[in-house]
Amino acid sequence: MEIDANTRAIGESHSKLILLGEHAVVYGKPAIAMPFPLKVRCIVEETIGHVMLDSIIYTGVVDHMPREMQGIAACMKETLNYLGKPLENLSISIDSCIPLGRGLGSSAAVAIAMVRALFAFYGKELSKEELFSLVQISETYAHGNPSGIDMVSEASDCPVWFEKGKEVLPLKPTAPLFIAVADTGRMADTRTAVDNVKKRYAANPEKVEQSLEKIDDMANKAKAALLKGDIQCIGELLNGNQQELVKLGVSDEGLNGLVQRALKAGALGAKLTGGGMGGCMLALGKNMEHAKLIAKELREYGASNSWYFSTDSDMLYGVYE
């Protein structure tokens, strides 16, 4: 056996939040996504024999990975093939803090961390183009026809402006955002949410187009507000975006309740984030202490988890009972 670089390497990635524009992005509208400091770490080590995987979902030989991890398996195999390395003599450990199926980009984050770890293990430089090409394999398994917003935002250290098929633009806020995030404790039912939008479009295309155009306009205004540091404006736009998502049928009672609780706690704005029909929501605070207060209120209201953070720091804080 020969390992021509390291005997141990680590790759990391973070999750993501969609600030504005989910669902509208499917119809060619822009979205703003941002890093969320919930992280995943992948450790690759030298061993002898079959490639072994250790994760919260599955531990064992890679060839026997369960159906829900086939995208990760395919990404791993293609990465090793791309590097010209055999599928053997490796131990791969995945340690993720990102809850599954909540619209936070768990699958893309795991794939990013794994590709980074494998390239580091063999001492190879990794370009952004190589990373996206390999991660796309996993994302196609997970989502069928992914927009790409998860992997580009999770590979970025700042918010991004995303339009499918166009160049991704980094957005660097001139003032920090103080954000609280709450998990409903339920898997986001993205398929149902997408179908709801399609059904409404078929029944009343003019009404849905109006909502999509409003979301487009709000995304553009939020882009300008981020660059100016106008947090108050961003909050108002979050509220407006949530109203349109409710009209499109992608929010639900649990998400709506958390949004209202955040607003009652003085949040500048609040909305669901991700696929909807479960999953997570976010709220914008006035400062870090206010974000902490909102996160605490959301947990007391019934969120299974809540966190708060500032965009000018890589630190994430949780609220515990």
Rank of each mutant, 00 (worst) to 15 (best):
S127Y: 00
N239A: 13
I43C: 14
R200C: 09
L298F: 03
D314A: 14
E297A: 15
G278T: 01
Q232K: 12
P99N: 07
L104A: 15
S138W: 00
G276R: 03
N241K: 06
D189S: 06
L258S: 09
R191G: 07
L53G: 05
K166W: 01
A219E: 01
I112C: 10
P30F: 04
E244W: 01
C158Y: 02
D150W: 00
K166H: 10
G274V: 07
Y27K: 14
Q243C: 04
G60P: 07
Y301A: 15
F121N: 13
S211R: 07
H290S: 03
V208S: 14
T184Y: 14
L38Y: 08
K29S: 14
G101R: 09
I234Q: 09
A291I: 08
L134C: 10
L53D: 02
A182V: 05
F119I: 08
A120I: 01
E213V: 15
T7R: 07
V44M: 08
S127N: 03
G285M: 04
G257K: 13
A111L: 05
L118A: 10
L237C: 09
I10V: 15
D95T: 05
E88N: 14
K228Q: 13
L19F: 08
T59M: 01
D4H: 11
K172S: 03
V194H: 04
D189Y: 01
N287A: 03
G285N: 04
E289Y: 03
P99L: 09
D150L: 02
E244S: 15
E129V: 11
G235M: 04
L237G: 10
I32R: 14
V62A: 15
N287E: 02
A219L: 03
L169H: 03
L248M: 15
M277G: 02
T140V: 11
I179W: 00
V194G: 09
P170W: 01
S55L: 05
C42D: 02
M187Q: 13
P86Y: 08
I18V: 14
D54G: 06
A193I: 00
G257F: 00
K128Q: 09
D195A: 15
S156H: 02
S306M: 05
E289A: 11
L171P: 12
Y82F: 14
A267N: 11
A202E: 15
N256M: 06
K228T: 08
L226E: 05
G275C: 06
A155G: 15
N196K: 09
G302N: 11
R116I: 05
Y301W: 12
S211Q: 11
M187H: 07
L272V: 05
A180E: 01
K85V: 11
K207T: 13
K247M: 04
L248A: 07
Q136V: 00
L238F: 13
V194S: 07
E68H: 12
L293H: 09
M277Q: 09
D216K: 11
A219I: 02
L245W: 00
G185M: 12
E68W: 05
D150C: 05
M114S: 15
M277R: 13
G240I: 04
V168S: 14
G103E: 02
